[in-house]
Amino acid sequence: MEALLNTGSTIDEGRLAKGGNKYSEDYKTECAVCWVCAEDFAALGCPEKVKVTSRDGVHSVAVSTKVTESVKSGHVFIPRSIWANVVVEPSTFSTGSPLYKGSPVSVEPTDDVVMDAEEIVLKLYMGEE
């Protein structure tokens, strides 16, 4: 499914990040989550986890799903965090600021393991190609 990815703060994301708990299980439970509306969730086959991939297809990340009324069909939300930023578009349109709001992504069901924040750094960012 093609979607526009919105990212932003949630109160518990803020509480955990400001409290220095980015490597906690709670942080992963709060942030490694893709919010979708019921209609899209059903269309995806009601998956427990989804793989979100950036427009260029280079980067992808597995996250849990959460059904919500707060987003409309075709839009998904991931709390501002390392999981979301793996797939945020790095182009800044000559402004310095990446597309944290409204990045085009694709979303598909997956059985991949949801990595924790430290694993993402070690495997995706520091790992050998």
Partner: peptide
């Protein structure tokens, strides 16, 4: 590293980096 897109974060992890912070984080 937590807050920038993957391409930029990856290069940042590649080059020598000094970090001043209070708690463990990416």
């Amino acid at each position: 590293v937590n807050h920038i897109p993957a391409d930029a974060a990856k290069y940042l992890a590649d080059i020598p980096m000094i970090c001043l912070d209070i708690a463990p984080c990416p």
